[in-house]
């Protein structure tokens, strides 16, 4: 098992190196000038402009800039934002929990609803329910999520007034930041000081609902379809038939024998969806004013904030790699044939 993990880890090295090169190269190819953006319509004295570029280290030859960049990365230094002059790592760590919270909640929604729908559809194959689930999941899969987000706000927040419009919590609550996950922080605050923070946790949850649905719709559709087909596959297997023949209760057959094996391909899908989720976060965060890294990166691209874009994208890429790595390992644990394959 250990050598398996080591082997997988070793494979990551060239990928990570490639990603630093790619992000660095991509960003330098974007035309535009961060200093101009900061100044706007106003005139910029050429000498001042040159001085600013020099201060930011943008007047060096490209390979030197890359070496500087790689060198500081090795020291764990992600540089400073050109616009806010705050360390990129600090900005990342304040904004990432918001994205993480949204992603987890969206994934939870996707997995719970997707699995349930998939399992029931597989058991009642050919029924009206099955057709309904499959039709809906295909619709969800085809949904432009930015449009879905707008529709959700229009319906639930504006027309019906059931959910808050945007943000992470009612700002009347001044929640102290502990974990950065608003639901957890709000719960802690409410727990420690019930008088001042009554209802904070519920409010934080309410803010999470619509963005999670918008972001989770596509993964949910994929998971529902995947679960259904892999359940159908497993239900045909001999051991399931044997289990049934032994007279085990249908519930036991489904949950103990079938679902466990059907989950393996579903797990891969969950891993693959992390990348999609991060992409979707860009749109969802834009629509719901969610202070996460998707919006941060879009803003940074528009302002030509080089360190933020390249390191932000690097962080996201590392995250995707990490999740897929974990899925790989889990997969290896679940399936010995993969573990031992050279």
């Amino acid at each position: 098992m250990f050598s398996f993990i080591l082997r997988r880890l070793w494979l990551l090295v060239p990928s990570i190196l490639g990603i630093t090169l790619l992000t660095f190269g991509l960003i330098r190819m974007i035309p535009g000038d961060p200093v101009e953006v900061m100044v706007g319509e106003r005139t910029l004295d050429p000498a001042l402009h040159a001085a600013a570029l020099h201060r930011l280290g943008l007047d060096k030859p490209l390979y030197l800039q890359y070496l500087d960049y790689a060198g500081s990365l090795l020291h764990g230094n992600l540089g400073q934002s050109l616009v806010t002059r705050v360390n990129v790592w600090d900005e990342f760590t304040t904004l990432f929990p918001a994205t993480l919270e949204l992603a987890i909640s969206a994934m939870l929604f996707a997995v719970v609803v997707g699995l349930l729908a998939g399992v029931v559809a597989a058991i009642k194959r050919g029924s009206l329910f099955d057709h309904g689930v499959m039709g809906l999941s295909l619709t969800g899969f085809s949904m432009p999520i930015f449009w879905l987000g707008l529709l959700l706000i229009m319906l639930f927040s504006v027309r019906l007034g059931w959910t808050p419009v945007s943000g992470r919590i009612d700002l009347a609550f001044d929640i102290p930041v502990r974990t950065g996950l608003m639901t957890v922080d709000a719960w802690l605050a409410e727990h420690n000081d019930p008088a001042n923070f009554a209802g904070a946790f519920k409010d934080a949850l309410a803010h999470l609902i619509l963005p999670s649905i918008a972001l989770g719709t596509i993964p949910m559709a994929v998971i529902a379809r995947m679960t259904r087909s892999s359940m159908l596959e497993v239900l045909r297997e001999d051991y399931v038939r044997t289990a049934r023949a032994k007279g085990l209760s249908p519930a036991r057959v489904i949950f103990i024998h079938t679902l466990r094996n059907a989950l393996i391909p579903v797990l891969t899908v969950v891993g693959l969806q992390v990348g999609t989720l991060m992409g979707g976060a860009v749109l969802t965060e834009t629509i719901f004013s969610w202070p996460g890294i998707g919006k941060w990166l879009i803003d940074a691209i528009q302002r030509r904030d080089y360190p933020v874009v390249q390191n932000g994208i690097l962080m996201v890429a590392l995250l995707v790699i990490l999740v897929n790595f974990i899925v790989d390992i889990l997969y290896g644990i679940a399936n010995p044939r993969i573990r031992h394959a050279k």
């Binding site: 490639g18 974007i30 999609t276 991060m278």
Partner: peptide, 24 residues
């Protein structure tokens, strides 16, 4: 395959946005 892995690690929408930002 390594190069493809690198491209796969970047969320596709972000990569597409970066490319459009470069090319206009």
């Amino acid at each position: 395959m390594r190069v493809m892995d690198v491209m796969m690690a970047l969320p596709s929408l972000l990569l597409a946005i970066a490319i459009v930002a470069i090319l206009g």
